[in-house]
Write a protein that binds this DNA or RNA. Structure first.
Lengths: 357, 357
DNA sequence: TGGTAACACCTAAACGTTTAGGTATGGCTG
DNA sequence: CAGCCATACCTAAACGTTTAGGTGTTACCA
């Protein structure tokens, strides 16, 4: 039918200039109602579809934000993405997914290539789920591309960049208190690598909590996958011989899954042989045997807030540019947020008086 | 530093014309090695980043594919997206996520708006996880945008459009046989709405299987969310008074989750009071109480195949255009694929001799 | 009647690329 | 040395928009 209709053609067909046509389509002023209607109807009839590339080239506002992740087989990210989607949709921004893991493992080189592509496409902003390299961030800054970190923090010395995270420190203390209330003193933390900055905060919080509770904390690190977690935990347990820790704290739900696998192989029963508690709530936690005590980070909420924050920065930036001001994004101090977490107590952490479902 | 460097500036700085510069950067021929090196080094030094919008405007190949979903709080989609990502990445295509659900529920109007945006952005192709309206498809066809359906089929009468699905019919027969082997004759199917076309195929397969097994099949429909499923199942159970079905078959994992919730509230124990089996394998299935018997659809594999198929169509299209041929995508018959499923037997479906963990 | 303000509209120049078509330069052939 | 071809390069015209700056036309007022 109408595979390619340009604005020029619409204008000609309507008997006006491209100027008038453009104004009419964009609801601008300075066009009589008659011309406006005429243009609109002709456009519809011809099946006119504006060319975004041309618009953008001419200096229109950018309209897609990139979400950078690294190997996400985690339901947590689904929720987060949903939140991001919703907020972005509301602000008329498309969401472009960019994963910088090459086979489940983070890749520096891919990070660079990805940032490059993102610049080439003149994206309006970036949401990153992990701490990018300072080099990448400098690159984005040069080009005035705003960035918001989510569930992760900016690298050392770049604290002015906004981040939306769970209150990981608080979460750890919360867990710690809960563990202390059971009298557990031998804790093991199964952690993912620290390209995800939450790893550090969580660990530090646990250390502090352990100290307060007079407990000791052993940290075991594994690649961020169930398989790796299973192997790492098995090894750690063997190294300890028969002596099980009182409680295992897993850093997120893929690690938890791996841990459950390992425990099932080693015939360790929770919570009697060893209690278990994990970061990241997920839908199935109540139905697992035993029902799992977890921290609820409200991933969707976090995603939504991050996207809203980014969108706001972008729109302020657009205003500033229109006003002829500095095009650099203005990162106000109050953009960084910590979302409080809840501890959802189920049975995996031990019995004690009455229990919640 | 270098917020905006145009090709012209690079060319000037290198003392050549834009033509030469362009050729040099794109590794084209007809440029002496000396000029080429010069241009490249100057470009690097100035921090030149090509403008994709300009390139595209001038007629370069498109470079992002859209993935259309509707309200995906389902881990199944995460795996699928991972597969899509991988294949798209390999073909240098960006992945743009477009959800056409407005509050968890599919919205016709949003579908239209989304297709419009997708056209405006001149995306290179579409992967859809649900059966789009014929109107939308016509729109895409007008603009020669290739489409591949994944985990869903094209609408009535458009069978030439490729789709990558699980062998849903086969899967249903598989389940049916399994149920029959336990002697179950009273089956209930908890299904999602049929904008997802797999609903029909699954139901038809179950009907056939039920007939073969001399069983009866009751179908209960719910919106595609755990909450809705919980409510619908509770209602259905009440309507049947005390008489429980022998087995409940849930259409996907959010529905399964809702069903488990309802069963827990109604104090129905699986598999003794009622067996349960579900479509969609997911990571936690082995650890739920009871461990769940499920169908494994290999979501990542499906996603990967879909993306590869789309990429191939796109590249053939690009070739045809370059050769001056018809720009319409060429959908060959053999692009449509059915991926076989596996039945993973655990305990939720009943006891019988030896069992798999 | 002339002055002027408001309005509807137009022409033409951008935006940053690619590329068709052309022009020097030099080397080879006969 | 004329004739020819490759090679390396250039000029200028697209691609489809937006928009600054300008030109009528009408309407109103003194």
């Amino acid at each position: 039918m109408a595979p390619k209709v340009t604005l020029r053609e619409v204008a000609d067909a309507a008997g006006v200039s491209t100027f008038t046509a453009s104004k009419a389509l964009n609801g601008g002023k300075g066009v009589s109602e008659k011309s406006c209607d005429k243009v609109l109807s002709v456009a519809r009839q011809l099946g006119y579809v504006p060319n975004l590339a041309a618009q953008e080239l001419r200096g229109a506002a950018r309209n897609s934000v990139a979400v950078i992740t690294a190997g996400t087989d985690n339901a947590y990210y689904l929720d987060m993405m949903n939140g991001i989607q919703k907020a972005a949709q509301a602000a008329d921004q498309s969401v472009v997914l960019m994963d910088i893991a090459v086979k489940g493992a983070y890749s520096e080189e891919l990070e660079s290539r990805t940032v490059q592509r993102l610049l080439e496409a003149r994206m309006s902003g970036v949401i990153s789920t992990l701490t990018l390299r300072p080099e990448s961030i400098a690159r984005l800054a040069e080009w005035d591309v705003p960035i918001v970190f989510v569930d992760s923090t900016p690298p050392e010395g770049m604290g002015h960049l906004p981040s939306i995270t769970t209150d990981n420190h608080g979460a750890s203390l919360l867990v710690g208190e809960h563990l202390a209330s059971f009298g557990y003193t031998d804790w093991m933390f199964l952690a993912y690598p620290d390209i995800w900055s939450s790893r550090r905060t969580r660990e530090d919080g646990l250390r502090e909590a352990a100290q307060r509770a007079g407990a000791q904390l052993q940290v075991v690190e594994a690649e961020n996958s169930a398989k790796a977690a299973c192997a790492a935990l098995t090894e750690a347990m063997e190294a300890r011989n028969e002596r099980l820790p009182d409680v295992l704290i897993t850093g997120n739900s893929p690690l938890l899954l791996g841990a459950m696998e390992a425990m099932s192989q080693l015939r360790i029963k929770a919570p009697d042989d060893m209690a278990i508690v994990s970061y990241d709530d997920f839908a199935w936690a109540p139905f697992v045997e035993p029902p799992l005590t977890v921290l609820d980070e409200r991933a969707e909420e976090i995603g939504m807030r991050a996207a809203r924050t980014l969108v706001q920065i972008i729109s302020e930036q657009a205003q500033a540019i229109k006003a002829g001001d500095n095009a650099a994004p203005n990162y106000r101090k109050d953009l960084t947020q910590q979302v409080p977490v809840g501890l959802i107590v189920r049975r995996s952490c031990g019995h004690k008086g009455k229990e919640t479902s």
